[in-house]
Design a protein around this nucleic acid. Structure first.
Length: 362
DNA sequence: AATTCGGGGCA
DNA sequence: TGCCCAGAATT
């Protein structure tokens, strides 16, 4: 038996039972692929069900607001995926009559669909022979061929892609792709691969040479920067219910289009009055003689992202009753219930939970 | 070609 | 801590 038939035989006996494999609807395949970009299946699973439940078809997703989509995506990270998901749903609903293009080239034109996702859709939903190249496939083939060059270099990536597209079963391209990924995820794992039970162990160059644990080689080292965030929980009471002030993040930065508490970012840990009076909201409070100085600091979190280490400080600033001036732009007064429904960075969601009782007891 | 975009799980 | 995850878009 050759590579492909051994792989497919293994897959038929060992494949994982995953909900999106019960259907070949492009919408469901697409949704699962977007959710799973840079995301582990265990983490994405609940989101897949949640999205399908709330948006059972592409029209439902297209009809939703971006806020609703971002809210449902809360906690998954890489929020541009959610924005592009929503954008493309509308694109397909309006321009393509609700039907996905059925070929790799046209799929690639859609926002949020790159080489991997276009190949996944083309092969799984439309039975076209395009190999998916993800972290799993890269690892499997780098080991199988004993590639000791860095797999994150374009030249090597192209080699791996060519190899995968030669190995792919033109009759069962979707099955081949999923088999490669399953093998990478369950046998040919990053840490200690289970070579003893691998269907390809006889001919795997890395296995034969005993170098499976040093492949794949990668060169890129991520450099992190440190940032200091000061968030202000500003809240008042309008005689009927409590209100708090939100800010929408509209810049090209992390968490774009998510909601947070009014923020001042500083170059170092300290927060000076000088900086505070440059902030539209804080400046107004200070002018109105409302105490806002850091004695109200109530919480501190460190939060690690791929390229940033965040130090987040939170300040609790009670305001006089019925004091909720209008601010321009991205600021809005909302109830706790309304704030809960907005898509927020997980950092903010975690913090505000501390105040749930406070807000719910009026 | 290099950088940036989250968050969680695990050795 | 560092690495990885069914990557894509931007610089």
């Amino acid at each position: 038996m050759n590579f492909t038939s051994r792989l497919l035989k293994w897959y038929n006996e060992n494949k994982r039972d995953l909900p999106w494999r019960e259907s070949r609807e492009p919408y469901k395949i697409w949704l699962s692929e977007i959710i799973l970009q840079q995301t582990r299946i265990v983490q994405g699973l609940a989101y897949y069900h949640r999205f399908l439940d709330k948006f059972p078809d592409i029209q439902a997703l297209a009809d939703a607001s971006e806020d609703d989509v971002l809210s449902l995506w809360q906690g998954l990270g890489y929020y541009s995926r959610a924005r592009n998901l929503h954008y493309t749903a509308r694109e397909i609903a309006e321009r393509y009559g609700g039907k996905f293009p059925d070929n790799y080239k046209d799929l690639l034109e859609l926002k949020g669909i790159g080489p991997y996702t276009a190949a996944a859709l083309a092969s799984i939903a439309f039975n076209k022979p395009h190999a998916t190249i993800d972290g799993n496939v890269t690892r499997v083939l780098a080991r199988y061929f004993g590639i000791t060059d860095p797999v994150n270099e374009t030249k090597i990536k192209n080699q791996i892609s060519e190899a995968a597209n030669e190995l792919i079963d033109p009759q069962l391209p979707g099955m081949f792709n999923q088999a490669m990924m399953d093998l990478g995820a369950t046998i040919c794992k990053p840490g200690k691969p289970s070579c003893n039970i691998c269907p390809l162990n006889n001919e795997c160059v890395a296995r034969v040479k005993g170098i499976e644990e040093i492949i794949p080689v990668k060169t890129s080292k991520v450099k992190q920067r440190e940032r200091f965030f000061h968030f202000f929980l500003l809240h008042t009471h309008n005689g009927n219910e409590r209100l708090l002030l939100t800010e929408k993040r509209e810049q090209n930065d992390i968490w774009k289009n998510l909601y947070q508490l009014p923020l001042i970012e500083t170059p170092g840990v300290e927060l000076t009055k000088k900086v505070m009076i440059q902030h539209p909201v804080l400046d107004r409070l200070i002018s109105d003689n409302i105490p806002v100085i850091p004695e109200g600091r109530v919480q501190h979190y460190s939060h690690v992202l791929t390229h940033q280490r965040l130090q987040a400080f939170f300040y609790n600033i009670p305001l006089p009753s019925d004091y909720y001036p209008n601010f321009d732009g991205a600021y809005n007064w909302v109830t706790f219930g309304a704030f809960q429904k907005l898509g927020k960075p997980i950092l903010i969601a975690r913090f505000i939970e501390i105040f749930r009782d406070f807000f719910e007891n009026k």
